[in-house]
Amino acid sequence: MAPRLPARWATALTSTSSTTAAASQTLITPRQTLLLPRTAKRGVKYGWNTAPPRGKPTRFNQVTAGLPAPTTGPAAALARKAQSTPLRSGVLATKKGVSAMFTQKGRRIPCTILQMDQCEVVAVKTRAKNGYWAVQLGCGNKTAANTTAPLLGYYESTGLPPKQHLSEFRVRDQNGLLPVGIQMHPDWFKVGQFVDARSNSRGMGFAGGMKRHGFAGQEASHGNSKNHRTIGTTGPSQGGGSRVHPGKKMPGRMGNERVTIQNLRVLKVDNEMGIVVVNGHVAGPKGCVVKIADAIKKPPPVETFLDKAKRLLLERNKGHENRLRLAQQRHEHLKELRKEGRIAEAL
């Protein structure tokens, strides 16, 4: 049974309570009006139950129902992926080129030079709001004229200039989140640790089967006629169901797909130059954006280093809370002006 509605005069009294606070307090308590009997809400006749309370009575298969935790669904998915999700965020960098380093003993180590340019935290994604934990990073610089109005508003609320690239890094839990507006530097990584590098490979255009999938091609002679690099037959004959199986490797667009190179050792970090040098090669042409993150198939860097890196990061970005708060206030104010069409006043 729904609670009884108060009388109109009582409603009027309560609605004006802010103006006549002193008068209303004598008549009305925060819960009920004194002049009316309290509406009954609990009791067997109102459907009161003696069973233990359930978290979400409308949902079934809850833990409170004495059933095992579900193995599907968002929570189960997060728990399943926790082991392969890094503890902390990675960074965005640009591939500058490939070179080599020499050890003291003279061993040559091929390496890739990646430069971090204005890599800043633009937003965080939380389990409550977005369903997962992640840090959104932006890197590079983009002129406002090349940025759309919605994104300009987005950057305005963060207190950051428009970014050339935006990307998210999933983290295991809220300990991996970083405050919005801080800038990351190469010493986020420890020399010697392992990282994964994700980037888009160089696009090869439309390529034939030999180049794209490594098919053997056909012979040059023995009666072969104009079929030296063709892929041959694409499906079995009558007995095998004369059709082309799904996923058959064929000529087509090659490259320009995301490639992850796992377990690259960090050889050098230099804050001044803004570079991270990793062992080996990273996919993609010079100038491509590379996502570098702690390797998922190796143990993470030691706890003390993680703490130190985070502490350094926060020390270097002192006052980031204030800046963010000010930016948000300014954004709210400007948003209001834009809505009312009075934005010219702010200029």
Binding site: T94, Q115, M116, D117, Q118, E120, G140, N141, A144, A149, L152, G153, Y155, E156, G159, L160, P161, P162, Q183, E272, M273, G274, I275, A327, R330, H331, L334, R338, I343, A344, A346, L347
Partner: peptide
Amino acid sequence: RTAFAVYPRGHSARAIN
């Protein structure tokens, strides 16, 4: 039509190097 605040860019390793 409208206007947005654009914040200055921070320390840029690329600009320096």
